[in-house]
Design a binder for these strands. Structure first.
Length: 964
RNA sequence: GCGGGUGUGGUGAAAUUGGUAGACACGCUAGACUUAGGAUCUAGUGCUGUGAGGCUUGGGGGUUCGAGUCCCUCCACCCGCACCA
């Protein structure tokens, strides 16, 4: 009998299922542990070997924690609403619910083969009405809440109403419109519609007309983070800005808390930094610059700007407004009107992509208007330019060319005189942007250091009431509407223009069936095509993809609750997710929204914690290695009846050096004289274009040679391909890139599992390298891991004699190997170093098999030690050792100090300036002149065979510290 | 441009607080048993040199008895943000 992973794994799975070993008890005296994977979106392509990387890591950790005596919640579910299923529906007419269901079934099957310990009874699907009922419910809570800025806490709208009735909004600035101001009697005088309009400006989920990213191709609005480099993240379609009525989440009200509580989280610095950047907090001042014009009704108009460099105010030479700024048309003078309007039109005509790629180009227009400097009274021209963004700060700046690169370039381009407030620090060629040095020629702040000068200026502005300190955030409110079908319907009905929440008792609002997934009229979603829906004046938008995923981690705690999203008892028991594993791609989207929802639910008293994910582990991607076959295109040659020409990569490399178009043409003719090829003279004018064609990686061998027969079979039979090469072989080049179906480089985990078994697959994925590093999949190395598992199995079994475990007492040498391995496993798992843990198993098994050790006393703990990594094999061994219960119910073995250390002798590396080379060993520690001794771990191991403390520190001959 | 990160054999990588660099594995070389080996086992494998030895963690410099690890500087690559005032 050999190691038969197929039957071992089948038996183990059957046993787990029969005994319900993965079921997580609701009540337990054990300490809890919650470890979560980012649930997948079930795409039609199925899983490839990259997907399970994080799942395997979390599975190992979950099993380990369970062996350590924790009650472990380790659930899985599906993020089932979203665009791809709907796009597919548009193309094929297949209902998204059906494709989603099929895809989930396939995912489930693939996941099961790898042996994950998920409690599937807790599975959630965001598209299930029983689930999205609560997504809608939470939306209603946000709709019914506002942020009390002074308490930094979300409160109920009803409380706000009673505040308004008593004192108006004097103590609660309106976040939606800071200009709104009223007292109690004014409030009471408002009509119901007016009151609701005001309240809408406070709600955490609110309706607003706003400029949003509109994607024509997808027919929907996209969130900021769904737009990448000026095109849609999904599909890469162009996007434009458009004014539309949209639902929003007032996440900006949480900016400060989202920023601050990052400090309490165990996330990578990179991840925290990304969130900090996204929130983008900056300290500065708002300053009013009055227009140089006659007062109307005793007031003058002013331009409010934001600056982080108030210290440079005396260097301001002109003003710049965003082209979209509301004052632009009213301040523009008659002479400048044409120029300004042309410029505004030009800016509007430019796609976001153009704007982004041509960042360095200077453009702008003069409005003809002037403002007066608040301190000097200097007249300053007002310009507009697209380098000032309407969405940041106030959409207007004071331009200080000597202290800012962009202002400098602008001034140079339009020949605006530049004042210098930095003396010799500014050379006239390049702006001085450092925030150190002394300010000059600046009235009351002259010769002050920059930081102090800034403070002084702001103080002065505040005294004069023309400016104030201001904290600014880049973060914008999150768009929460999609003109799409396959998402959660809003629990909202309209009376005229006024939206009303649907009574919570009527939830869920079921997503109705539609015949067509085409958009409705006027950019509305497909729901607008349903007469019954419209008759009830329901909201036609649906929620975005991140709605369901913003709270799913809570539902796992109490997945079948029909009365609450999760009971308080359940959330109080499980609390935060202890470890959350997933990719970095959700750094600012999902992770930020989840944090906000958690904080809101906390504020409203539904849960007892305000951060969802205590520790975050990012797994790297497993990339594919695409095989690229180069095809030749000839420009400038008249080639009739051009076949597909494929060229060996060896030959490609010669291109730049010696081969020209004509050489290629000659080669083609030699090989295939029937081809009629055009003019051959002027060879250098014939341009060769090499086009990459990604071939199925299965028809390329390990030396990158193409299986020409197999390839030809896949081609159109009428087109005879021509292959060009020096030696009758066609070589491909390789490229490491994302694994995807379209790149024909996908390795399917099912195939690997079928060939080597799930345990080998799991261990190999871990063995590849650190969990957070991206790396290409390479099937070659898997043999080593497979050999190791077989070797381990042979510690228990002999191919002839069968079961060979004996009751003999273990020797010290054997125990040392065992205990070192247990210790190492424990340490490595705790710090997520699964690759080195696998290595230590290999060492252990190698050593035990060279000692010919088949003893129960050693092998029984070893089976438990390895159970998290190779659960099927461990289960079988555990069972064969006579245990009725699953190995998961065993306790992780403990290691004993005596087998891993021995401090009877010390071997220092350096003593009082003497190096090891100059000393004799072992040293006499009673020597009085020894002041300090530091031991090298590796040195000790060599001398002591692994028994020693790591460091021993002596002072004046007395041992003062032993570090183990 | 700004922010974060990484650079170690032919390859994936170890080295936990500064202490024998390259564990473990792939690959490769030789050998054993074999009709055969894509099974198994043994030995070797950073570079260089016949050898003792010398050299080696992207380059250069520094701190230290001792540096892959700490500091400075330059280079390369990766990720994120990007006209954010």
């Amino acid at each position: 009998m050999e190691y038969d992973f197929d039957s071992i794994e089948k038996d183990a799975r059957a046993k787990w299922q029969k005994d319900n070993v993965y079921e997580v008890p609701e009540k337990s005296s054990k300490p809890k542990f919650y470890i979560l994977d980012m649930f997948p979106y079930p795409s039609g392509a199925g899983l490839h070997v990259g997907h399970p990387l994080g799942y395997i890591a979390s599975d190992i950790f979950a099993r380990y924690k369970r062996l350590k005596g924790y009650n472990v919640l380790h659930p899985m579910g599906f993020d089932a609403f979203g665009l791809p299923a709907e796009q597919y529906a548009l193309e094929t007419g297949q209902h998204p619910a059906i494709t989603t269901k099929t895809n989930i079934a396939r995912y489930r099957e693939q996941l099961d083969k790898i042996g994950f310990c998920y409690d599937w009874k807790r599975e959630v699907r965001t598209s299930d009405p029983k689930y999205y009922k609560w997504t809608q419910w939470i939306f209603l809570q946000l709709f019914d809440s506002w942020m009390d800025r002074s308490q930094q806490k979300a409160r109920r709208i009803a409380e706000l109403v009673s505040i308004f009735e008593q004192e108006g909004n004097v103590n609660h600035v309106c976040p939606g419109d800071e200009m709104i101001s009223f007292d109690a009697s004014a409030w009471k005088g408002y009509s119901v519609q007016e009151q609701r309009r005001v309240l809408m400006q406070y709600r955490l989920a609110f309706l607003d007309y706003a400029v949003v990213w509109w994607c024509e191709a997808l027919g929907t609005v996209l969130a900021n983070d769904e737009v990448v480099n000026g095109v849609s993240e999904r599909g890469g379609h162009p996007v434009e800005k458009k004014q539309m009525r949209q639902w929003f989440l007032r996440i900006t009200e949480y900016a400060e808390r989202l920023l601050k509580s990052l400090e309490t989280l165990e996330w990578s610095d990179a991840m925290k930094e990304m969130q900090r950047n996204w929130i983008g907090k900056s300290y500065g001042a708002e300053v009013d610059f009055y227009l140089d014009e006659a007062a109307v009704n005793g007031t003058k108009r002013f331009i409010k700007i934001f600056t982080t460099r108030a210290d440079t105010i005396f260097g301001a030479d002109f003003m710049v407004l965003a082209p979209e700024h509301e004052l632009v048309s009213s301040i523009t003078t008659a002479e400048q009107r044409t120029v300004v309007e042309d410029y505004v039109t030009y800016v509007k005509s430019r796609s976001e992509r153009e704007r982004m790629t041509e960042v360095k180009q200077v453009s702008g227009a003069f409005t003809g208007a002037y403002v007066l400097h608040p301190f000097t009274g200097k007249q300053m021209p007002v310009w507009i330019s697209e380098y000032v963004l309407s969405g940041y700060g106030t959409g207007a700046i004071m331009a200080v060319p000597c202290g800012d690169d962009r202002d400098h370039a602008f001034a140079k381009h339009f020949h605006i005189p530049i004042s210098n407030i930095f003396g010799e620090l500014y050379d006239g060629e390049k702006a001085y942007t450092e925030k150190a040095g002394r300010i000059q020629k600046s009235s009351f702040i002259s010769m002050m250091e920059i930081p102090q000068a800034a403070e002084k200026v702001i103080d002065m502005l505040e005294d004069l009431q023309i400016g104030k300190r201001k904290v600014n955030y880049k973060l914008r409110d999150a768009g929460f509407s999609r003109q799409r079908y396959w998402g959660e319907p809003f629990p909202i009905k309209y009376e005229g223009e006024t939206p009303y929440a649907i009574d919570a008792k009527e939830l869920p609002v079921i997503l109705p069936h539609v015949e067509s997934y085409k958009p409705g009229p006027e950019g509305q979603g497909p729901l607008a095509n349903i007469p019954e829906w419209m008759a009830e004046h329901r909201e036609t938008n649906t929620m975005p993809g991140y709605a369901g995923s913003s709270w799913y981690f809570l539902r796992y705690m109490d997945p079948h609750n029909e009365h609450e999203f999760a009971s308080r008892a359940a959330t109080d028991y499980w609390k935060q997710v202890d470890i959350y594993i997933g990719g970095t791609e959700h750094a600012v989207g999902h992770l930020l929204y989840s944090r906000m929802w958690t904080k809101a639910l906390y504020d409203l008293g539904y849960i007892g914690f305000d951060e969802p994910f205590k520790k975050l582990v990012n797994q790297g991607m497993i990339q594919g290695v695409s095989k690229i076959l180069w095809t030749v295109g000839l420009k400038g040659a008249e080639v009739n009846h051009v076949p597909a020409i494929y060229i060996s990569y060896d030959l490609c490399k010669e291109f730049g050096k010696s081969l020209f178009g004509a050489d290629i043409l000659k080669m083609i003719q030699q090989r295939n004289p029937t081809l009629i090829v055009g003019p051959m003279e002027g060879s250098k004018e014939i341009e060769i274009i090499l086009n990459p064609y990604r071939v199925d990686i299965n028809i390329v061998d390990k030396n990158d040679l193409l299986d020409i027969n197999e390839f030809s079979k896949q081609l159109d039979i009428n087109k005879v391909p021509v292959f060009l090469s020096n030696d009758n072989t066609i070589r491909c080049s390789s490229e490491v890139e994302k694994m995807s179906k379209s790149k024909r480089n996908v390795i399917n985990p099912d195939d690997i599992v079928a060939q080597y078994g799930a345990d080998t697959f799991r261990m190999y994925e871990m063995f590849l390298g650190p969990i957070d590093v991206s790396k290409p999949w390479d099937t070659k190395g898997i043999e080593g891991v497979h050999r190791f598992i077989k070797k381990m199995w042979r510690l228990y079994n002999d191919e002839q004699k069968g079961w060979i475990v004996s009751d003999e007492a273990a020797t010290d040498a054997e125990l040392r190997i065992l205990h070192k391995t247990i210790k190492k496993t424990e340490e490595d798992i705790e710090r997520f170093a699964f690759n080195t843990a696998v290595s230590s198993f290999m060492i252990c098994v190698n050593e035990l098999s060279s000692l010919n050790c088949h003893k129960l006393a050693v092998l029984e703990p070893l089976a438990v030690c390895i159970a998290a990594f190779a659960p099927h094999t461990a289960e079988e061994l555990w069972h064969s050792l006579g245990h009725k219960d699953s190995v998961l119910n065993a306790a992780f073995p403990t290691w004993e100090q005596q087998y891993v250390t021995d401090n009877s002798k010390v071997y220092p590396v350096a003593v009082n300036g003497k190096t090891r080379a100059e000393m004799e060993f072992p040293l006499d520690m009673e020597q009085a002149d020894i002041e300090k001794v530091i031991l090298a771990d590796a040195t000790i191991q060599k001398y002591m065979e692994g028994k020693a403390p790591k460091k021993v520190i002596f002072v004046k001959g007395k041992m003062i510290n032993v570090v183990v």
